[in-house]
Design a protein around this nucleic acid. Structure first.
Lengths: 341, 341
DNA sequence: CTTGATTATTAAAACGTTTTAAAATACCCC
DNA sequence: GGGGTATTTTAAAACGTTTTAATAATCAAG
């Protein structure tokens, strides 16, 4: 009895007792309910502060059914440099002064997104593991988008789907990226362009294709889609494919590389077969880090700001969770700070 | 009444009703309590499966006080390529079939870890936001380690502290990394070695220093710690500093670079001032991605497996949470798969 | 059969909130 | 002052678990 009073966790009950009020009143006061008298609200607020009260998340969650959790699905696909982290940094920044927590759920499921949204998302929705979901790498007819839209579960995708966009998304303007890249190369003398693309399943393949096609038509030059590898292939595979194609006599003289790994792999491949980048072959690389500012020889590059994308995703999701309609929650990132020389 | 039966969330109560048992029994049965008859245990298990029952995390958490959450603290420091993600991938893999969830908490706090463990960690412990914590970039006398050890809060650090290791950690064998790198360069003819180090506050600076010192003494060559920049500086700063030092007449002829950014920056700097890497200056770079396999000219490099580190951190933390003593939970990652030529 | 010990089940409390419905208090107007 | 309304507070239930203490069922042994 004369022991140190075991420092008990500050709870609404404790506040209520020291203030001589009921728990219900305390709860309302803390919530800023206008039905509570100003005086009591202030009193409660003060005591709460003194006691260092913080609401118990579990209790809130149990009572309200709201988890205060946002899930980020990490694709099983091998990591592009820092893709995940950059996005994560942005997301956490966007969530900073909400009190949502970001839970990272890897999707170790079967490789391709087929007709079903995958075990992870199904489980999240079914067991209400989160209030909202974030994911990337969308397909034109994305199973996850369909499923979540049907069930009315809040989410924001990184990447668009086809058709009427009835869901919230953040995307990069890949069409314009490809267009600007192509124009750049043409201005430097390229007449036969090529582009390395993501796998056919992913939506942004279409966007890239659209962009480069526009440029090619406008300037009346040749286009050859590079089909020895995709952006998802390993560096080794890309390197080999590039080497093979560009050693042939009718090689393109301009190549768009929408990723850092493919950029480096291509540089290595070209040098290995004795071609000089930016001379024999024009290159434009999309970078999401500062990597290519350090690479020699210098190549043209355009920057995609992933932290910013993450931030926007978080913001849109928060608005969605506040009840805004998904149709209004779109953000296409403009291509900024091109790094062309 | 004739509406579709609103599909109600499967709960222990529901199981109890359909089985004609009490909730308590169901709870025990699901927990595998031996006091429950085999027959009932099987029955309950079966019904649960049919109903697709999954325990409500909030309720469990409220009742038991266990959050089933592990927090990863993201340092405010600018991201090394993929550092966070690689670690995160590993961690999630390690947590895969536990039912802990990984929550990412960025530490936007003041730059340096001073005498207090920081707002984030304090809050996590005080409000029991998680059952365990993971963080990186330890200092010899780390405030977080001290605080968490004192309060008995389970954690695993990436990086060691000084003295008797009474806490759980995972670390990379930086001493050996520096030693092997140095020996390599000496074998290739270098006689005046240098090394780029992390800021003095971080423990692994000592390890690197120890390693290179050992080599230098053993082979009786010269050592000059590079002090124009640290590993934490921006690529630009490192590049400038390298350029400055290596343009001077008495420059070192071997340089250890414990990071990808510094590796690239150095390559760029040397080339810019007309020096040939691996000829005028020997380099060994530590890489955590496959990056340097693609960089030309090729340089020697040694690989640090971050996903593996993350996996180990998760495993150790799980063991800690199961009650094992922290003194026994250590893992120093050996340097593996050197990529020397 | 009883008794006493095992074994198996249950009722009820508790975790910390939010919220519904009811009760208490204050206020106003005639 | 009395009656009604508006304002403020409260008691109690509920969310879905786990667990303590008590009860019911089974069984061995005398």
């Amino acid at each position: 009895m004369t022991h140190d009073a075991q420092v008990q966790k500050p709870t609404q009950k404790l506040i209520a007792e020291t203030a001589g009020l009921s728990v219900g009143t305390v709860s309302r006061a803390l919530a800023g309910d206008p039905k509570i008298a100003d005086a009591t609200r202030r009193l409660v607020g003060q005591i709460a502060a003194e006691l260092g009260y913080a609401p118990d998340r579990a209790a809130q969650r149990l009572r309200t059914g709201k988890t205060q959790v946002i899930n980020l699905i990490l694709p099983p696909h091998d990591e592009i440099f820092g893709f995940g982290t950059s996005l994560i940094r942005g997301i956490t920044r966007g969530l900073e002064d909400s009190n949502y927590h970001l839970v990272v759920m890897p999707d170790f499921g079967p490789d391709v997104t087929r007709d079903d949204p995958g075990e992870v998302i199904t489980r999240i929705v079914k067991n209400r593991l989160a209030d909202g979901i974030l994911f990337s790498r969308t397909e034109p007819n994305d199973a996850r988008v369909r499923f979540l839209t049907e069930t009315g579960f809040p989410f924001v995708s990184h990447g668009r789907t086809e058709g009427k966009h009835t869901h919230a998304f953040v995307d990069y303007d890949n069409t314009n990226f490809a267009y600007k890249s192509a124009v750049r190369m043409i201005q430097k003398g390229a007449r036969k362009l090529s582009i390395l693309l993501p796998p056919p399943t992913l939506t942004f393949r279409q966007h890239l294709l659209q962009g480069i096609t526009n440029a090619v038509r406008e300037y009346n030059v040749e286009l050859e889609v590079f089909n020895g590898a995709t952006l998802d292939n390993s560096a080794d595979q890309i390197e080999a494919a590039i080497r093979h194609r560009f050693a042939a006599p009718d090689r393109p003289d301009g190549l768009v590389l929408p990723g850092e790994v493919s950029g480096l792999a291509t540089l290595a491949a070209l040098q290995d077969i004795g071609l000089t980048p930016q001379k024999d072959v024009q290159l434009v690389v999309k970078q999401t880090t500062g990597l290519f500012d350090l690479v020699r020889p210098r190549v043209d590059c355009i920057f995609e700001d992933l932290p910013e994308a993450g931030l926007q995703m978080a913001r849109l999701l928060l608005r969605r969770l506040r009840g805004e309609a998904p149709e209004t929650l779109h953000y296409v990132q403009p291509i900024s700070s091109a790094n062309l020389q």
